[in-house]
């Protein structure tokens, strides 16, 4: 399927996948590096927005303006709606549990 695409499109697809991978990597690093549940929630949602976002954009480019390509755009939309809701739910649950956000100078947890 890929072989039939013109070079510019292949280039864009590769670029998008790489960008998506980069942000997923950043997000993963953030989850390991950052100190507490709140700051990790920040970075975990990064993987969804731009990581999955660029990957899906690449998918849409490969498939083109057909049913499935269109659906990947819709998928993107739903990720953008649900992702902040989920991140907020996690943060809110942590807050309700009385977890104090980490600040500079605190020990790592």
């Amino acid at each position: 399927m890929i072989e039939t695409l013109e070079p510019v499109r292949i280039g864009l697809v590769v670029l998008f996948v790489l960008i998506g991978l980069f942000f997923t990597f950043v997000s993963m690093t953030g989850v390991i590096r950052l100190p507490d549940v709140y700051s990790r929630a920040h970075t975990a949602s990064q993987a969804d927005t731009l990581g999955a976002g660029f990957a899906l954009a690449a998918v849409a480019l490969v498939i083109g303006w057909e049913g499935a390509g269109f659906k990947s755009v819709i998928l993107l939309f739903f990720i953008f709606v649900t992702n902040p809701t989920a991140a907020h739910a996690i943060a809110r649950a942590a807050f309700e549990e009385g977890i104090v956000p980490w600040t500079e100078g605190d020990e790592r947890r």
Partner: peptide
Amino acid sequence: ANSITLTPGTLTVRARDGDLYVQ
């Protein structure tokens, strides 16, 4: 609140009436 959460670096923790608690 969702736009704030979507932009990395800010995270809505609570919405208490008109007050947003944002990390």
